[in-house]
Amino acid sequence: MAATGAALYLFVTVHLLGNLQVFLGPDAINHYAAALKSVPEILWGARLGLLACVGLHILTTVQLARINNKARPTAYAKKANSASTAASRTMYLSGPTIAAFIVYHLLHLTVGSAHPQFSETDVYSNMVFGFRVWWVSAAYIIAMALLCTHLRHGVQSMFQSLGFNHPKHSPRIQKFANAVGILYFAGFASMPLAALTGILPPFFERL
C-alpha cells in the first residue's frame, strides 16, 4: 500500500505540473499532450503501470479492511477519538470517492465520452469548455480536496509503514507533506476556477 501510494503520489505530482501548462496558453499544453501521446509504447506502458498501481492499492486496502473488520467484531457502545486526524479516519471515504472521480475524469478529459465538445488534439479547449460547466468544476474541486486529505495521511503513513520515523525528521516531513497537500489542492483547483472566472478564455477569444 505504501509502495503503490508513493508511485501514485509521484504521478499526481507530474500530472499537476504537466497540466499547469494550461496557463502558458493553448500551444504549450497541446504540444505537451501531443508529446505524451507520440510514443504509444511509453504512453500505454505508463497507463498500464498506473492501472496496476491503482489496482494493487485497492486490493491491499480491501485485504487490510477485511483483517481489521475481523479484529473487532463487537463495536464499542461509546468510542472517542483522541489523537487521529480527520484525514486519517476518512481514508475509506476519500479513497473510493477519488476512484469514482478518476473514472469520471478519464471519461471527461481522456476518452471524451462525458464531454460535450471533446477534441482529440485540443486539450486546452477540452479543459476550458469542460470546466465552464459549474457543477463539473465543483466536482473536480471537491475531488481534489479529498485527494489532498488522502495524501495528508498517506504521506505520513507511508514513511511510518516503511519504518522511517525519527523525532527530528518526522515532524518536518509531516509539515512539508501538509504544505505540499495545500499547494497541490491550490494547483489543481486553480484550473477549473480559472476557466469558470474567465481567466482562462476560450482559444478564439485569445486572438
Partner: peptide, 14 residues
C-alpha cells in the same frame, strides 16, 4: 487475529 496498523496514532494517545 489482531488488526493491521493504519498509522493513525490513537494508541499513543491512550
Amino acid at each position: 487475529q489482531f488488526g493491521s496498523c493504519t498509522n493513525i496514532g490513537e494508541c499513543v494517545a491512550a
